[in-house]
């Protein structure tokens, strides 16, 4: 199966496929660092004090980092799940014979949708639904649709005709063909889309803090607002680690599914 559509944005970059001892060690270190930063931020006070201006607090003290991290993860998980459901259903519909007519148009719309920057979507959603969680959810769900839809269509379209013919020859009805042949074969690509969405959303959710959504963006914004580099770095590192770890974990899951699809 072609892997060219693995990421929507960039050709030919793929997840780490085989875990070397160094990669495993790196992952564990990143996870440990993340946990310490969130659970025991005071440990890092001496390091961050170097960046804080005289008298400014070195460690974010306007709320619980753990709570903000959990809010952030919940926001991203919820919006990515919603995007995934909508995008996969749409992607399946437009690749069925009865929905094929809609494929060129939905492709065009998905492409055009990408030119809307998340900040703009967020800002425009505010007057419609007010400040806080809602505009952020709208922006994240909308923005997350695109990679998943594109990859769902690419994955379902990429199932070789010979495989479908064989499934037909085995007497599988359309529903069985879809559930036990097409969907499993397309799953690695669909998951790659979900992974991309989740990582983009982890970043976009920080921008959500500009419209008062609860999340780690608050830490960074507090730093930007008071010129406290220690806060910026602290928020940035936590969000960055979160993104890298989620990207990595979903990449592993994807590689495992791809291996299984290859064997099937």
């Amino acid at each position: 199966m072609s892997r060219s559509g693995e990421t929507l944005r960039v050709a030919g970059t793929r997840a780490v496929r085989r875990a070397s001892p160094a990669a495993i060690a790196g992952r564990l270190c990143a996870a440990a660092l993340l946990l310490l930063l969130v659970l025991a931020p005071r440990l890092f006070a001496p390091a961050f004090r170097l960046l804080a201006e005289d008298g400014a607090p070195a460690i974010y003290d306007q709320g619980s980092l753990l709570q903000l991290t959990l809010d952030h993860v919940a926001l991203v998980a919820g919006s990515t799940a919603a995007s995934a459901i909508v995008a996969v259903v749409l992607g399946v519909l437009v690749t069925r014979p009865s929905g094929r007519d809609f494929l060129p148009l939905s492709r065009t719309l998905v492409n055009v949708g990408q030119v809307f920057p998340p900040v703009a979507v967020l800002a425009v959603a505010v007057p419609l639904v007010g400040f806080g969680l809602e505009p952020t959810l709208i922006a994240l769900v909308l923005y997350g649709l695109l990679p998943i839809f594109e990859n769902t269509v690419a994955g379902l379209d990429g199932v070789p005709a010979a495989v479908m013919d064989a499934a037909r020859g085995m007497g599988l009805d359309p529903r069985r063909r879809f559930l036990s042949v097409e969907l499993p074969l397309a799953m690695p690509l669909i998951l790659a889309g979900i992974r991309l969405s989740a990582v983009i959303n982890i970043g976009t959710a920080t921008i959500g803090s500009t419209v008062a959504a609860k999340g780690l963006g608050e830490v960074i914004l507090a730093g930007l607002g008071t010129g406290n580099t220690a806060f910026i770095l602290q928020g940035g590192i936590i969000v960055g680690l979160l993104a890298v770890l989620v990207y990595d974990a979903l990449g592993l899951l994807e590689a495992r599914l791809a291996a299984r699809a290859g064997r099937a």
């Binding site: 970043g203 770095l233 940035g236 890298v244 990207y247």
Partner: peptide, 15 residues
Amino acid sequence: IQTIPSIAMYGLMMV
């Protein structure tokens, strides 16, 4: 690098 959120990246570059 691509996975670092933009808002954090901008903040980090300030240092």
